[in-house]
Every structure is written in C-alpha cells, then in structure tokens.
Computed example of a mutant assay.
Amino acid sequence: MILSLNKIFYLIKDIFNILIKNIFINYFKFSGRTSRKEYLIYCISYLIIDYFLQRKLPFLWYFIYIIYIFIPSLSIAFRRLHDFNFSGIVILCAIIFVIAVTMFFDNYDIKFINDRLTTYFIYTLFISLDVVPGLIPGNSGSNKYGEPPE
C-alpha cells in the first residue's frame, strides 16, 4: 500500500515538474528535442485542464488562457517534431491549412458540410499531429536539432 502511494506521489510530482518546465521555463524554447513521455504528459494534462476550464471559466478568461497556453503548446510540438528530424514549420502549415479550409466552407455557407467536415478534419489533424508523435519513438541518435532527450 505504501509503495503504491509512493509511486503515485512521484508520478504526480513528475507531471507537475514537466508542466512547470514547459509552461514557464521553456515558454519560448523552440529549439532542441522533447521526449515522448514529456510530450504525452503535456498533451494529456492540457486536454484535462482545458476540458474543465472551458466549462467553468467565463469566455473572456478562457480566451486569455488559450492565448497564454498557445505559445508553450506550439514550442513543445516544435521540439517533438525535431525529435523526428522534422522542421516545426509543419505545424504552422497545418494550422494555416485548417484556417483556410474553415474559411472556404464558411464563405460558401454550406452548413452541413461545414459542421461535419470541419469537425472531422480538425479531429483527424489533432490525432495525427498530437497523438501519433507521442506514441512513436523519435530518432535514437543525435540529429540536426541536437542530442536525444533523456
């Protein structure tokens, strides 16, 4: 019983250390590489926190939170792509593509297609850019973005 509580304590401590490191210390760090563990903990924690804040905060405060958390989310995604020896510009291209597709369907006012297609497209993009990099191991050796993460 004590051993399992001790493991839980260290797991929670590790989660908070990763969140603090990525949200406050590495806020503008777009260089280097990020491990799978660090990336997955950040993404899962972000989704859980976002789920509750979206429902509890007024729109203005939630919007301020989204603006604040956008940069660290982008930086950890860049560093995770660097672990695969890819440029982080892939994320920016995907964001621009989602905005363009959404604007295209809004301009033509195709309500059914807009709602369904945009929703499925954004979920597919989210899974391919957020979940998959967290499950696949990066390059084992050093690459042009630095040494492998711990």
Rank of each mutant, 00 (worst) to 15 (best):
I89G: 05
A94C: 07
L81K: 06
K7L: 15
S73A: 03
P149I: 10
T119L: 14
I71C: 01
S73Q: 12
I41S: 01
N85C: 03
F52W: 08
I122A: 10
I12H: 02
G138R: 06
T34F: 01
T102S: 07
Y123K: 10
F104Q: 11
D50Y: 11
V90T: 06
D50K: 04
A77M: 08
I127L: 15
K144P: 00
I99L: 06
Y108R: 10
E38I: 06
L57A: 07
I113A: 07
I41P: 01
Y51W: 10
P148L: 10
K21V: 13
I99T: 03
D106L: 05
N139R: 13
V131M: 11
L57G: 01
T119H: 13
L57D: 03
I91L: 15
K7I: 08
S35C: 04
L3P: 00
P72M: 05
T119P: 00
I23S: 07
K56P: 04
Y46V: 01
R79T: 09
K111A: 03
I12G: 09
F105H: 07
I66P: 14
Y108M: 14
I110V: 09
S75H: 01
L53R: 09
A100L: 09
S45L: 09
F121E: 15
R80C: 02
S140M: 12
S4G: 07
V132H: 08
F112C: 01
T119C: 07
F78H: 11
S140G: 11
G146H: 04
S75Q: 10
F104N: 12
F16W: 13
F28Q: 12
I15T: 10
L47K: 00
F97Q: 00
D14N: 13
D106M: 05
L60D: 11
D109L: 12
S4Y: 03
I99M: 01
P58S: 03
N85P: 04
I12T: 13
I122P: 01
S4D: 07
F97M: 15
R79P: 14
Y120F: 15
I89D: 12
N17P: 15
C93N: 12
F9N: 03
Q54D: 07
Y27L: 01
N26F: 13
I67L: 15
Y27P: 00
I48N: 00
I66E: 15
V90P: 02
F59L: 08
D14Y: 01
V132R: 05
L19W: 06
P149N: 03
V131K: 04
N6T: 09
R116Y: 15
M103Y: 05
F121R: 09
N17R: 11
S35H: 02
S75P: 02
I64V: 12
V132W: 05
E147H: 04
N26Q: 09
I91K: 07
N22W: 08
L11V: 08
D130E: 09
I20V: 14
P72L: 05
V101G: 02
